[in-house]
Design a protein around this nucleic acid. Structure first.
Lengths: 187, 187
DNA sequence: AATTTTTGTTCAGCAAGGTAAACAACGAAG
DNA sequence: CTTCGTTGTTTACCTTGCTGAACAAAAATT
């Protein structure tokens, strides 16, 4: 049976997530800095993330304690193998999401980036993998994919009801898209 | 120009989000209880979310202060119009996401629900709307969509590289899907 | 009417994640 | 050698969101 949207086994997994949003960005900052500068220090991480050195210091000591971050002989920050794996998977999710939003859904770049950034560490690898499959297919040169893109272009522009389509949400016959425009965004 | 993944204007929006994950679920709990029981009290909300009555009491007083929750003449909890709008949009996002994961990506139900639950309040309405468009199209009876579903079934099963396809992530020629299986999930 | 239960609120405490300020330690420059 | 700037850590404090315990008020029972 399907669990309710408020089922406690689901809704509280949010906080129990293996890696918090901020921790993910500390890891990615180390990665980016080592690529850009060849090294990463606490101060550099703090500056990149626009947090105080104190906050960075404490967060990084947490990550060291968990075995995801270490220091090289020159006392520069370093991702451990485990840390590198985690970082890669999150960056991977970010790229999949942002490119999917931009190239498949044609969401504008800033919105795509913002949405992907919030979601990257929450989407399971399972879902990310399958989203990548879909995107690879829809963006391929395969004749069918090309025709779908063309067809979807018109669909998006006119937002026209598809013949014989049943709304995947309400199960109804096209009312859903219309009724939903009422639901505005809050302040 | 494209902003970096760690750009502070993006990564810290996570905490500045208009509505936190837990607040969203307090709102949805009220909604669900009024549908199920015809009323909603603090204790009912607490029980549905598996939190203490104290936590629910404090969270709800926050939501009242923000004007999203009120009390009816019988002192039962009530969503204001504004609160109702917000709740609807989040529930809408949840349904879009979970159905997209299940029916388009064929993710198993528990994973789809867990992922959707974490993301529902973070995905913009813009992106959600477009995702709905895509899903409506891909699940429609239109001849092209049917053929795509059939084609994707084989694609998923064999995970075969598509002829002439360029990996939307690395830009390369099919190495990306392979190299990515290294990136395991952490503990 | 008196007692017990349920309900809702408040309070102290904890954890995550920030800030600002104080401070130690190192390295370069006078 | 001393002084100054940078670096990294620590400390006190804030906010969100939870727990558990104490407590008041309302409902239900006896």
């Amino acid at each position: 049976m399907e669990k309710a949207i408020n089922d406690a086994t689901y809704w509280r997994e949010f906080d129990n997530n293996a890696l918090s949003h901020s921790m993910a960005h500390y890891l990615m900052a180390i990665n980016a800095l080592r690529d850009d500068l060849g090294y990463a220090r606490t101060t550099d991480v703090a500056e990149m993330l626009s947090v105080s050195r104190g906050a960075a210091s404490m967060a990084l000591s947490q990550l060291k304690k968990r075995g995801w971050v270490a220091e090289d002989p020159h006392r520069f920050l370093l991702l451990t193998n485990h840390g590198k794996q985690i970082t890669n998977s999150i960056e991977h999710n970010y790229v999949i999401l942002s490119k999917f939003f931009e190239r498949v859904l044609h969401v504008d770049e800033p919105t795509a980036a913002a949405d992907a950034c919030k979601i990257e560490h929450l989407m399971s690898m399972e879902t990310g993998q399958r989203l990548l499959w879909l995107m690879r297919y829809l963006l391929s040169d395969e004749e069918l994919a090309v025709r779908v893109r063309e067809r979807m272009k018109g669909f998006r522009e006119r937002c026209d009801p598809i013949q014989g389509s049943v709304c995947p949400i309400c199960g109804g016959e096209d009312e859903c898209l219309a009724s939903e425009s009422e639901a505005g965004r809050e302040s």
